[in-house]
């Protein structure tokens, strides 16, 4: 019965449908094209380059395809492995500190009261984030200057002898770690603050009725809400530290010796000093793979949906 009465509309429907079928594509096209232009195309280009002998300063050699030769060379390159290991050490040095400080600051800001103070602090947290990496490096050079740097002045106040930060391998590593922590702790704090504000008030209060320990509250009630943010921070930072260049370069150029020679500094050297684009692309692709693997690991280890 009903189908009989709506007989005419189905004849018009193909017109509507053809319009409707393409509409979503049209809406998506700009985003997809942009993504292709700024993300996929360069990546594909890097993949292709990584399969070639591609040195910009040896144009007369041409750019022949060499298969996986670049990858094999990179994997066999002990400098690459060393710098990667150093980068990993850097990651495990700065991340726990940034996370711990970030959570502490976030908890302090999450407490009720001090409305004006909190607003001021929240804004000032953005300052390190908004500072260019290279400028952070320059600031670092000043802070850790042996003779007139702030770091040694602090040390002197506490009765410790000044340290030759940038001239000492461990000191230099510590110095770049400190600057990284300075720059990124606020980011962690803001992410965690957002996570804390996701905890429904009454859930937090219910927990406060069951335990007096802020630590237990953090561990059992707030932490689950922090995990998505934590995952994001870990992923972002693993990608970011793998390409951390400007700050370290302006501060130490990877020295003294190889103390702060992170993998990004090495890749930059291969790519833009030696101009061996093939090898540099292979290194970059390997790091991309590493980033993806790490991201999957972080997601499966930490990411839990809460609703």
């Amino acid at each position: 019965m009903a189908s009989l009465t709506i007989d005419p509309p189905p004849r018009r429907r193909p017109v509507c449908l053809s319009h409707g079928r393409w509409t979503p594509f049209l809406f998506l096209a700009p985003a997809v094209l942009t993504l292709f232009a700024i993300g996929i195309y360069p990546t594909l280009f890097a993949v292709v380059t990584s399969l070639r002998h591609y040195n910009l300063t040896r144009t007369h050699d041409g750019f022949p395809f060499v298969g996986l030769h670049n990858y094999i060379a990179v994997l066999a390159d002990h400098t690459f492995r060393e710098t990667l290991a150093r980068t990993a050490l850097f990651y495990v040095t700065v991340m726990p500190v940034e996370l711990a400080l970030g959570v502490t600051i976030a908890l302090a800001l999450h407490r009720p009261g001090w409305t004006l103070m909190r607003a001021v602090v929240r804004v000032s947290l953005v300052v390190p984030l908004a500072t260019t990496y290279a400028v952070v490096g320059l600031i670092g050079r000043l802070i850790f200057n042996r003779d007139f740097g702030v770091a040694n002045q602090f040390a002197n106040w506490f009765g410790m002898p000044g340290l030759d930060w940038l001239g000492d391998p461990r000191g230099a590593f510590a110095a770049i770690a400190v600057m990284d922590i300075w720059q990124w702790t606020p980011f962690c704090a803001l992410i965690f603050l957002a996570g804390l504000s996701m905890v429904p008030n009454e859930v937090e209060e219910a927990a406060r009725l069951e335990t007096s320990s802020p630590l237990a509250l953090l561990r059992h009630v707030q932490l689950p809400f922090l995990l998505p943010g934590l995952t994001a921070v870990l992923i972002l930072r693993s990608a970011d530290i793998l390409k951390l260049f400007d700050m370290v370069f302006t501060m130490t150029r990877g020295g003294p010796g190889a103390a702060t020679d992170l993998v990004s500094i090495y890749i930059q050297r291969v790519g833009f000093r030696v101009f061996d684009m093939g090898t540099a692309s292979a290194q970059a692709i390997l790091l991309l793979v590493l980033t993806i693997v790490l991201s999957r690991l972080f997601i499966s280890a930490f990411y839990r949906e809460i609703d």
């Binding site: 429904p200 009454e202 209060e205 219910a206 927990a207 406060r208 009725l209 007096s212 609703d307």
Partner: peptide, 20 residues
């Protein structure tokens, strides 16, 4: 005395169950 030490239990309008 902090809430947890008062020996009271509370039922909230929104239930306030731990979602995880």
């Amino acid at each position: 005395v902090p809430p947890a030490a008062r020996g009271v239990a509370m039922v909230f309008q929104s239930y306030a169950l731990y979602p995880h």
